[in-house]
């Protein structure tokens, strides 16, 4: 293990971490602007030109607020909750390939922190851990509404994980690999997986909405029934962490969807661009394309939030268990039959 390798990975991790925080920060601003646009309002426009300093102002406000820990709360776990939510939100970015490898001289720098051969399962594991932050925080608050919300989050997460896992199985049948690096590399040019797995993508997307607790599946923070949800008792930056983790989760799941189904850094005509610009600029253009796809997905998340009303809890469970899971199983069977027929002839 040479020093250059360690430095290279360290710099990459630092950049990815910084970018995910920055994007999450500006997602809060974008969310308010999109909401304003959809509701024919102006949105935040006081801090800086067009209000672009609003996230900074919000951050400062969060830090300056009074820190309140309820007397009967389990103090240690009350603090662990938001930290865990942030941690599980951030570690998902480790296996995502942000671009094809940059070649400088004879040194090849992959734009991916690590390409483990169970990459998809790693993402899946991190997603399933995400609920612990909410559950621990909700229970430690010692508040009945928070507890109800934590329990809702847990059952919702588990229900939709099954459909998500089944839709990934159909994708694996097509890609023949679990490594995210390979999956993205195989979608060269126009061969995006969404063309082979349209139903699988739809299922995966609905499940990611549920896993990130975004509307219309934001039952754990349903204000009309639960006051605030699992973060009712939280104040100051601990509340900030919970809200922030949601935006990082949204960014990570947008990145996962873009790389699994929409070709990641691949775009039509990329070979021509590579021949024109060389091995340093072309991968960076690919990364820019990847981020465009991610922003499109983040916009879609917000668009849905301000368009579709929240589900009722029994509707949520009905959709998860009786609609998505049978569809996902049918998708697996159809995919495997088609693959068997293609291989036969």
């Amino acid at each position: 293990m040479d020093i250059a390798f360690v430095i290279e990975k360290f710099v990459l991790v630092a950049i990815i971490f910084g970018i995910s925080l920055l994007i999450a920060m500006y997602s809060t601003y974008a969310e308010r602007k999109v909401a304003a646009f959809l509701q024919d309002r102006l949105g935040p426009d006081r801090a800086g030109p067009f209000g672009i300093l609003q996230p900074l102002a919000d951050g400062v406000k969060m830090f300056m607020k009074e820190e309140i820990i309820p007397t009967n709360a389990s103090k240690w776990l009350f603090m662990v909750g938001p930290g865990l939510a942030m941690l599980t939100a951030c570690i998902g970015t480790a296996v995502i390939p942000w671009g094809s490898a940059i070649t400088v001289g004879d040194r090849v720098i992959p734009l991916q922190v690590t390409d483990i051969n169970v990459g998809i399962l790693y993402i899946f594991g991190v997603v399933s851990l995400g609920v612990y932050g909410v559950m621990i925080g909700g229970w430690a608050s010692n508040n009945k509404y928070s507890l109800l919300s934590a329990i809702r989050a847990a059952s919702q997460n588990i229900s939709y994980e099954i459909a998500m896992g089944l839709s990934i199985i159909a994708l694996l049948l097509v890609t023949n690999s679990m490594s995210l690096g390979e999956i993205v590399a195989n979608q060269h040019g126009w061969r995006w997986n969404v063309l082979y797995q349209p139903l699988g993508f739809l299922l995966f997307m609905v499940c990611s909405f549920a896993e990130t607790n975004r509307a219309p599946f934001d039952l754990p923070e349903c204000e009309t029934e639960l006051i605030g949800g699992y973060h009712t008792e939280y104040s100051s930056m601990k509340l900030g962490f919970y809200l922030f983790a949601e935006y990082i989760n949204m960014f990570v799941s947008a990145a996962v969807m873009a790389s699994l189904y929409f070709g990641g850094y691949n775009y039509p005509g990329m070979d021509w661009v590579l021949a024109q610009t060389g091995t340093v600029i072309a991968p960076l253009i690919g990364t820019a394309v990847f981020f465009l796809k991610i922003f499109a997905f983040i916009f879609f998340f917000m668009w849905v939030r301000w368009t579709i009303p929240r589900f009722r809890y029994d509707q949520l469970m009905h959709l998860g268990w009786k609609v998505l899971i049978p569809l996902a199983i049918a998708n697996i069977i159809i995919t495997s039959i088609v693959i068997a027929i293609i291989e036969k002839f």
Binding site: F124, G125, V127, S128, L129, A150, N157, I158
Partner: peptide, 20 residues
């Protein structure tokens, strides 16, 4: 990774769920 998903991510969530 299976131990991670199945035990930590699913079974323990259900344990915690029931105990809470």
């Amino acid at each position: 990774v299976v131990n991670f998903i199945v035990y930590m991510g699913a079974i323990m969530v259900l344990f915690l769920f029931v105990l809470m």
